[in-house]
């Protein structure tokens, strides 16, 4: 029996999104829907098109063709109002290193128009167990501390749509576990739709409701993490990832016989 269609509101939608760089397609007719309250993982090897997709979705790069909508509105024409309801965190961007943590967070709280910003910052810092970092210089934080400060920034405006680009990259297993749990907790409590990229399959299995595997800009697998493993000849998601990264053509692979 086919899975029943998701009836939740679509908050982010890409339709036939294509992005070319010098004639090379980084994204090739990429389509997907993200529903409210859903965590969608975007997976693929380096160069598969994840970052290009994320950049298009954030409005940093314009697609060569195709359509992008968020909250039912065309992204490009409604960029500011959409970004007001969204947020982003990446392991590869930083908040100004020479400011104190609270100063950076206060600036972004004011940009997003957060009511009672100091209280909100204190609450989020407590949630992420970094209240003690408030008066530290941002540039002197460890990778784990910095990631959690970035997450506070990402949760500041109570986003309905959150894009997390490798949020656990370079974190030790303990901190990565804490980050995953907090993301999942906040996501469930606030019914946030999250687009999540990671190379850590444990992240994906724990956090994502559904995943999309990209290879050379095209979707080669889509489904829940457990379904994808079940439909492949692999034993776990990491093996599926490696096979897709190496040959990418898993779509034609025969489904694994169910064990009796």
């Amino acid at each position: 029996m086919p899975p029943s269609p998701d009836t939740r509101e679509v908050i982010l939608e890409a339709i036939e999104l294509t992005r070319e760089f010098d004639g090379v397609k980084a994204l090739d007719r990429f389509s997907f829907k993200l529903h409210r309250g859903e965590v969608l993982g975007l997976l693929g090897a380096n160069g598969a098109g994840k970052t290009t997709a994320m950049n298009c979705l954030l409005g940093l790069t314009l697609p060569t063709s195709g359509e992008l909508n968020a909250f039912g509105l065309p992204l490009q024409a409604n960029r500011i109002s959409i970004l007001q309801r969204a947020n982003f965190s990446s392991a590869y961007t930083a908040l100004p290193g020479n400011l104190l943590v609270w100063q950076n967070l206060l600036v972004f709280a004011r940009i997003y128009g957060v009511p009672n910003p100091k209280k909100k910052i204190a609450e989020l810092m407590e949630l992420l167990e970094i209240s003690h970092l408030s008066k530290r210089v941002t540039g002197q934080l460890s990778a784990g501390e910095s990631t959690r400060v970035n997450l506070v920034k990402a949760f500041l405006n109570d986003p309905e749509l959150l894009m997390l680009d490798e949020p656990t990259a370079s974190l030790d297993p303990d901190i990565a576990d804490k980050v995953r749990k907090v993301v999942r907790k906040v996501q469930r409590e606030r019914n946030i739709g999250i687009l999540y990229t990671s190379h850590n399959m444990r992240d994906i299995e724990e956090v994502c409701d559904r995943v999309i595997f990209l290879h050379k800009g095209k979707i080669v697998r889509e489904g829940t993490p457990s379904d994808i493993v079940a439909q492949s000849s692999s034993d776990n998601l990491e093996d599926v990832f490696i096979k897709i990264a190496r040959d990418g053509e898993l779509l034609d692979e025969p489904k694994k016989e169910s064990a009796v």
């Binding site: 954030l58 982003f88 908040l95 100004p96 020479n98 972004f108 940009i111």
Partner: peptide, 18 residues
């Protein structure tokens, strides 16, 4: 340039800042 040097530019461009 301060925003470029501190790798903060993307945070600004993905915030609702015209």
């Amino acid at each position: 340039l301060e925003d470029v040097w501190t790798r903060n530019l993307l945070n600004i461009f993905v915030a609702p800042v015209r």
